[in-house]
Amino acid sequence: MLYVELIAQGLIQGSIYALIALGLTLVYGLLRILHVAHAAFFTLGGYVGVMVANQTGSLAAAIVAAMIVAGIGGILVFRLCYQPILHQPPFVPLIASIGLYIAAEELFRIVFGPSGLTYKYAFLQGQVIAFGSLRFKEAEIAVMLGSAAIIGVLSLLQTRTRIGVACQATVSDPQMAESFGISLRKVGDINFFVGSALAAFAGVMVSVLNNMVEPTMGSVPSYKALAIIVLGGLGSVRGTLVAALVLGVVESFGTIYLGHFLDRNAIAFAFLILVLMWRPQGLFARS
């Protein structure tokens, strides 16, 4: 039973990772940049979520607001920050992105204070009892179901709508897609909007889980999400999903059974290095 519980906890953590890493994959697939500042939208989502929820008393309103604000922020970052330096060598956008993330984290601290904010209302704090003895927080169930639903809808949109197909085409061959009249900028807008909105959704869910947003909440996702998309094979959506869930479970078991030898980050990266030495292109290489 303990193992079942550990797997379940790993999957919960994994779905949070997945939500954050998906946006990163979308960006990488299209632009080939490691978008470290992506984690800032996770934090932004948390802050917008808490503020809207405390004003309106509605978690749904908080989620929608957070996703829209972050989505628009994502488009702005794409247009103002990345587009002008896309033709530069890869470390240029990488360092720009790191600078952006540091500045964003500081901005959160200066504007909202260093000790973070909490929810005034208790959302999803009840308990759900499943399979006899397993107990979850409502928020944990919501994270799992929510991410499954969102990812499901996204993959439907991607295959069933014109714009979704256009996005996929651009990711697999930008030049070819452009010659078919697809606007790179429009696809970029969409990818950044969707990716940042997903991160914001994750931010709201995590802030509900912990009843806390803090300026530094994005610092772990900022690098761990990178590890996940590399593990998944850089740019592969399916690979990212699998890698996120696998990493969640590895960490779940690792913190219990390896905790005395390595910390959580080191476990995650030891796993990453092992996989990369075995498969240098990640779990699911792009075709």
């Binding site: 303990l2 519980e5 550990l6 906890q9 790993g10 919960i12 953590q13 949070i16 944990e140 995590v206 889980l209 912990n210 806390m212 909440m217 960490e251 779940s252 078991f253 913190t255 219990i256």
Partner: peptide, 9 residues
Amino acid sequence: RQFGALISK
């Protein structure tokens, strides 16, 4: 901040 696994144990 997430202690799910640890708490299960």
